[in-house]
Write a protein that binds this DNA or RNA. Structure first.
Lengths: 221, 221, 221, 221
DNA sequence: AATGAATGAGAATTCATTCAT
DNA sequence: TATGAATGAATTCTCATTCAT
């Protein structure tokens, strides 16, 4: 038989698919173009995936897998809010650099999907982190680690919103230009991390009690 | 008379265009459908706009005009950070309700545009508010109204990010589903506003405790 | 507006469709080829007919209308079996000459259709003549015009079978070749008519004259 | 051993080919499906047959061989017209039951082939029986067994036409539905045979009894 | 100037055929 | 020699754009 597509080829196909879908959008992306870019014929593409939708789903699935993978790394850290936040920010920066296409595709999908499909997708993609963040913040509030006059769900939402916009700002031309406009040029990763942590730290804590608690610790030192 | 009719028709045309582009996406939106919905022939549509792209640009322009209009209302308020924030949040909620199409289209564009065009667009859309927020925050820091150990540009960026995600969460099916997943159901507008203000207030160290802390520091100095 | 397709163009389109479908078969016939042959673009074809199937149905409908029209002419004659048969044979010959494509398409469809569709089609196409022939033969049997020991349905069936094969033999290359093989060359229309009438006349044992003639012959022997 | 397996496989391949071609039509039948059904790879199929057309020809050839075989059985009987006719009708009924695919494929071909190929095919398929029938009828006319005022070729043609339509009516969905429409339901094989024989007998004016019967009636009048 | 029918390039998808293994 | 994955031409159908009326 003619040589079967190697695993790498299949991976490349998905990567190119993700890239095309992210760049041109699911409608405009051309199956022929993706096949050509991957050095295969349209025929194989259709041997492996029933149709454009199925191929798109596969690209999306891979994207979500990768993003979930990046998330798990963060989740596995200790539960303290601040260190978690720092890890998350750095993960966003790394993923944006290494896997910008994934984020771009995610943005496209998020911007385009509608109706029940949107709901299904949101559950699938955001479910884990939503629950995790909410639980973590609720716990932190009980511990006195963060203020207790906040709604864990909404604060988790705001927290994730900041990370999400960070993602978009790193991966999308538009949002990057916007970020640069705000910062008066491309911001330094480290500085941005530091400032965002400061923003979050302050947002979450920073009730006098927490500060007092902190002060106590520091005093002890 | 004839002109007036045309003027009205043109406005309707743009509205329908915005609606279609926002709903179906720039690729999938049909020129014929838009013309029909507006009660004119495709011919006229092409008489006024060279091609689909040009028409799309016009729709975008109108969208941005409207959004800028909404923004100006907020900007014209007094310069105190907190009241500004509250006004902005409420403006977002109102616009999302009244002009969801504009926000949906904006999201589509932000997710799609690339290269130089993205930059141009971002400057045009975000320029004013970016500059305004940065200046306002810088001023507030000088006044001791907010912490002074923060970068005005980045904090303006974070602030606007939160508003932007709020917009998306109100107008896009996907982001709405995500918000509901975080909040365990559709959040109440008032509660959300309150909590977000709390978040911001704290982030900017508005809270008396933080201020007191600051004051102490400053007194020491 | 650009000139709307004239009625003639539309007629031509159907004719070319019928011709292509009859020649190449519904599967192989190419929409593009039909459009080109008709001097129009594929686009119009799809403006007038939803898809290939719809266009095919239109072609078939026209075919059946024409064939039914030819049939009606015969049916409107007086009810005597023999003159009806003669008219039918001559109609077949004329239609085969003038509208061979219709018969060819009919043959293709008859050969191809299956399942419930076949039943529906057969009812639509053959229903009228089946009922008519059966009634006419039943009546003729009562009148003593034809033998009364025959089943009107089956005899109508045999009668129509002979006409049907005549159709096929005139319009299909294969059946024409077969006919010529049987006859040792292309048969003369008049001779064929005469002989077929003789065959039918005898089969139905209508004409006392024919019987008398026979008697005479036999008596002579 | 190996060869035997191949021989079996080849037979199976042809059977499956005939079945597919008869069912789906030459255009729609899929080479891959036929190979799979036969438990071989497409590769071997193309090793044995240059292309789809060649394979189709082989299927056709086998079909014709089988049909000729069935015919020979009838032809080997004694030469009396009536018993020959009865044998032929019963053979048609049996073949339709046992080898419906052959007849369906034959019908497809007859409906599709055109030009020189049609002629070649008709000669090959119909040649023998055409000659046989003509000769037999000519002889019967000389013997006084049938009327002598008929053209042996045309009468043979009419006779074969009736058998052919019987074939079609037994094997094709369309023609079966048509037959049932004429008969008011599925006819009984025996009744059909009896009536068709009556029709033929009368057409050829064979039976002295029928004539006598008539004579009696007429005398009474 | 307005109309909307006609155009035709372009996209998805299929499947007979090839050929490396 | 057998395999069956890969190829890519061909086909259907869509819709932005044009232009005769």
């Amino acid at each position: 038989m003619k040589k079967k597509l190697t695993q790498e080829k299949l991976g490349e196909l998905l990567e190119n698919g993700i890239s095309e879908f992210a760049l041109a959008g699911p409608e405009k992306a051309s199956m022929a173009a993706i096949a050509k870019k991957s050095g295969i014929s349209v025929g194989v593409l259709y041997k492996y995936y029933r149709d454009k939708d199925a191929f798109f789903d596969a690209c999306l699935e891979k994207t979500l897998d990768e993003l979930r993978g990046a998330l798990q790394e963060i989740e596995s850290r200790d539960g303290r809010m601040l260190s978690g936040a720092q890890a998350a920010i750095e993960a966003v920066q790394r993923v944006a650099r290494e896997r910008g296409d994934y984020l771009r595709l995610y943005l496209k999908i998020a911007a385009s999907s509608s109706g029940e499909y949107a709901k299904k997708l949101a559950d699938e993609i955001e479910g884990v982190s939503a629950d995790l963040y909410r639980a973590r913040i609720g716990q932190a509030a009980k511990n006195g680690e963060v203020r207790d006059d906040l709604d864990p769900g909404l604060f988790a939402f705001f927290f994730d919103n900041l990370l999400m916009m960070l993602q978009f700002s790193y991966c999308s031309d538009y949002f990057r230009a916007r970020m640069e406009r705000f910062c008066g040029g491309a911001p330094d990763d480290g500085a941005l991390t530091e400032q965002l942590l400061k923003f979050l730290e302050s947002a979450f804590a920073f009730s006098s009690a927490a500060v007092a608690h902190h002060e106590g610790e520091e005093a002890a030192v």
